[in-house]
Design a protein around this nucleic acid. Structure first.
Lengths: 245, 245
DNA sequence: GAGTGGTCTAGACCACGAG
DNA sequence: TCGTGGTCTAGACCACTCA
């Protein structure tokens, strides 16, 4: 059965779809909408919560509720080994890098195969398109790969530009494993990416392995589901020669 | 600044982490918790909403709120071309398949390159582990690939077991493209997978292409983020011979 | 029937942003 | 200062589950 706030959410959804309120427009105030639909404030607010969770509207405290402008989507290309550090970056995508030294937590120590508390260099990449944050990548290098706190190359927003470091350390990148997941943003990620903690994010856990099977880099990518996707193309073995021209 | 319900959510989260309420246990009733924390019902409920969104608790109408039992995770392996239909299935993962004939909607027609309204055979795969739904896959075959409504092979819960159909139709699978995304579950998906519409799901849009570049199958996978992940391993070209033994 | 969570109310007060 | 959304209250009533 349909509840009161669900019916209102449906009605508002239709009015948005009909472009009565085009993208970017401000909705009437919650007080006005509540009296329009003859419900109390909280009931109307739960209807708006539904639309916010769906990504249809954006709430701005003290200003109003706005129809969200569909964001351009960026693409993370999977399965590309970029030992030479020349990653395929999306055009117009700008990013910044910062680094610090951290101690290996439980997750990172098992991921990298280093003892708990071992020093790691952490690189944080934040990409932006028109001032809107689009992706967050955190890369961790063990101390045997590079001296602590050396600058990142900054060639790719995905943090896969460490071919130089590997070469300097006498390591040869052999394989890369990527694990994809979906979850809600953490409070910290939400703040960095300017999203709500209710936003779904696509996560990529990427580990780079050298010839001896040792993990030489780990990366944690966080991509807001409403503005990013990952793509992968696999070709049948037999045709590989033809397809790569 | 921390709000009232956030503080309560933190407190409850700590009590759950300390196993005061172990996995599967019922929390005190909302009325009891509200008086414990000296807040009103709605305030306590919004604290519980936070925990539900985080996947820490599960609400059961008329029964109580329960600490969620961590679910075993299943893995979808990406980048594997299984033209012969022998897919790597997770053990103990059971699934059912149903099929129907549908007309190509806007999304599907552009994905498959068929006219709007063209007849497609739709296969719906639902996998389960211990009676809990784990994945939903919908596969669409154009009519030139197979006669309408032929049964699926049922060898893989991911719907990548159509090698026989391709062969019968004289088609040779050449490449597979996968697109990954993250979003909330739709109402229909939530019902099938027994999850909330606020649950994050990992989506995979998979298109199979033959030698002439024609799309011969499209699949839409929906994997609840709390119980599934996708993995991909890429090996450097030079070492490929060694690694595949 | 007893107890649980789900919805809804009418209003108070606070925090934010803009003029 | 004003209008906005955010939080919170105290309680009513309904829907669901189980004994």
């Amino acid at each position: 059965m349909a509840t009161r706030y669900q019916n209102i959410a449906d009605a508002l959804r239709r009015r948005i779809a009909s472009e009565e309120w085009p993208p970017g427009a401000r909705l009437p105030s919650e007080t006005q909408l509540a009296s329009q639909h003859r419900v109390s404030g909280p009931t109307l607010r739960s209807a708006l919560d539904v639309l916010e969770t769906e990504g249809l509207i954006e709430k701005r405290h003290g200003i109003g509720n706005f129809v969200r402008v569909p964001l351009q989507r960026i693409t993370y290309s999977c399965g590309e080994i970029s030992a030479d550090g020349q990653a395929a970056a999306n055009t117009a995508l700008r990013f910044s890098v910062s680094s610090s030294v951290v101690e290996a937590e439980r997750d990172l120590s098992s991921l990298l195969g280093v003892p708990l508390g071992a020093p790691l260099t952490e690189y944080t990449y934040v990409s932006r398109l028109d001032r809107t944050p689009y992706s967050l990548a955190r890369v961790y290098l063990p101390s045997f790969v590079a001296p602590l706190n050396v600058p990142a190359a900054g060639r790719s927003p995905w943090g896969d530009d460490f071919g130089d470091r590997f070469a300097e350390a006498g390591l040869r990148l052999s394989s890369v494993a990527e694990r994809f997941g979906a979850r809600h943003a953490t409070a910290k990620e939400a703040e960095i990416l300017h999203i709500s903690i209710r936003t779904s994010v696509l996560t990529v856990e990427r580990t780079s392995v050298d010839e001896t099977g040792r993990v030489i880099a780990a990366a944690l990518l966080v991509l807001p589901g409403d503005r990013a996707e990952a793509v992968l193309t696999t070709r049948a073995k037999r045709e590989e020669a033809e397809w790569s021209r």
